[in-house]
Design a protein around this nucleic acid. Structure first.
Lengths: 331, 331
DNA sequence: CTGAAAGCGCTTACAG
DNA sequence: CTGAAAGCGCTTACAG
């Protein structure tokens, strides 16, 4: 049915070994004229390289598994897209799987990915998930965590350094005419993972303020705001999702942002440019994180110092900004 | 290195054929005691089924390729997630690829997917993309378009019926105390694809109003609003992205929504529950669309009538809504 | 530079 | 119910 290397070889009057050499550009040299004949035959016959046969023989499937807690969350969606870009630049195909923030499901999904003989695994650990390092090692598959790894794990983690960015956010709310003397922080339910680092960075500034907590979803953050007797005057939210929830809660409660509450979020996914008002954020260097994760999988050298998140100023902090939110934004 | 069926067979004192039968649950029956021995041996040895070897022999890789214009767009992200759910319920793994709204890239990506021997292809056609039906047929791979297929294509398309939903949106703006006598419509740059259907549905209502156009991105819609001398009083936007852009543009221009401009969008992705104000939308039945697409690929019967989009009322239309936007929303 | 042949780990007739 | 064996389409030593 499908055209095989044998068909091409027959048509080009050569062997399948030679066809393989030209299709793969190696590992043996092929005379220019032979190569032409092979290429012509392949084109005429409509030959398509069968990656699964190649995978079985060579041990490399060309597939990389990416496990994300929730691909609908714009932050993870953007990370996924960056990963796909980085992967496809190396000729790899991305197989994504949602864990749904569920450790059990994450394990199941990794199992399926390993069964598909992925060449590598990139995982954003679900809270409470087991460290998949053992499983990956058993199968000889390289593994790298991005954004979050299980507590106690010593697998490679690619994550941004948020300390300077959070400090800049806090300093921005205090200075620049915003002049808040207190800056509150909205964290997650626990201090596990990257959010914990952000909380620590906020604490390290020594600026007075209250620590608030909510689940990570938008609805939970909106609910928190609705239930507050006195809303903060200046707040840094640990994630975009929470900040969007705060905005929704403020909108419903008639609390003006930034007039009554100055808000800065962390993540900087694309949605933050189009909220009302547009969110000032501590932007994560997702493209760089994706590149590093892929380099790590491929065994290429990776810089020792983490990439840094940086403050992107829009309007939710109280800064005025020329024109509407979308100026300069590319969606 | 890896444990194979031969290893398991040896340990269980049986043949690899029998191991295959128990691993796959068929196609031949196996005696209960033999099956026990095989299962025990597999567990002891840590056997993992090698899907690529199985794929080469059986012709089925267990992989389904999904091509999306932009996985960061919440609408497509949500569709992707639903597809993954539907696919994994059938034991398939999803390989996603972004076309970036680019026909060339879409072709390249489909080529890679076909090379990976996917069992099926689900594509949301990029504007201007060639119909991949020929390529898919050549490889004997079933193909289904979702949401949008190339003009003139006669491949199977799974899309929602928006006529009733759009009509309901227009009627809602006219009646229910909103009482607008004109309802404008914000379309895309052309009337190709699903947005064209929505425009047609708006026209079919016969309600007076102006047809506005912008590119699909948020920024473009925001820019459009900024450039308007007189903003509409009542507007239906063809997509969530455009509606979010309109909201951003209105926020920057000081146009109150819904006070000054009543807005309804189409799509109903999760972000619309958390805008300020929350968007009333014509919600697409994504889960049902995903299920149908998968059923089609698997050759299972699919209902003849398309699933319908339905109006979900929140606040941007002018309705008041108890509590804050997030009530009842699940993120 | 080229070719014949083994073998990757399975599935699946086929024979018992 | 079970087993020996062919073969899926490649890649890769190996020999020429």
């Amino acid at each position: 049915m499908a055209v095989t290397m044998a068909d091409v070889a027959r048509r080009a009057g050569t062997s399948i070994a030679v066809v393989s050499y030209v299709v793969n550009g190696g590992p043996r040299p092929v005379a220019a004229r032979t190569r032409e004949r092979v290429l012509a035959a392949a084109a005429e016959l409509g030959y398509r390289h069968n990656r699964v046969a190649a995978a079985l023989r060579s041990g490399s499937s060309g597939l990389v598994g990416v496990v994300l807690p929730d691909t609908v969350n714009p932050y993870f969606a953007a990370l996924g897209q960056r990963l796909e870009e980085a992967l496809s630049a190396s000729g790899k195909l991305m197989v994504v799987a949602n864990s749904g923030y569920d450790g059990q499901r994450q394990a199941a999904v990794i199992d399926a990915l390993l069964g598909a003989q992925v060449d590598g695994l990139i995982v954003v650990s679900a809270p409470g998930a087991d460290d998949p390092a053992g499983l990956a090692a058993e199968s000889g598959v390289p593994l790298v965590h991005v954004h979050h790894r299980p507590p106690g794990s010593d697998t490679t983690l690619v994550a941004a350094d948020n300390a300077a960015g959070v400090a800049a956010a806090v300093a921005h709310l205090r200075g620049h005419g915003h002049g808040h003397d207190r800056v509150d922080f909205l964290a997650g339910p626990t201090d596990e993972g990257p959010v914990g680092d952000r909380v620590a960075a906020w604490r390290a500034t020594g600026v007075p303020g209250e620590l608030l907590r909510s689940e990570y979803g938008r609805a939970a953050a909106a609910r928190l705001v609705a239930g507050l007797k006195a809303a903060p005057r200046a707040l840094v939210a640990a994630t975009d999702e929470q900040a969007v929830g705060v905005l929704a809660g403020c909108g419903a409660a008639g609390i003006e942002v930034p007039g009554r509450l100055a808000l800065i979020s962390c993540d900087g996914s694309s949605e933050t440019g189009f909220t009302v008002p547009p969110l000032t954020t501590v932007e994560q260097p997702l493209a760089e994180m994706a590149r590093r994760a892929v380099r790590h999988l491929l065994g290429e050298p990776v810089p020792g110092t983490p990439p840094t998140a940086t403050l992107a100023i829009r309007r939710s902090c109280g800064c005025s900004h020329p024109g509407f939110s979308g100026v300069g934004a590319t969606d």
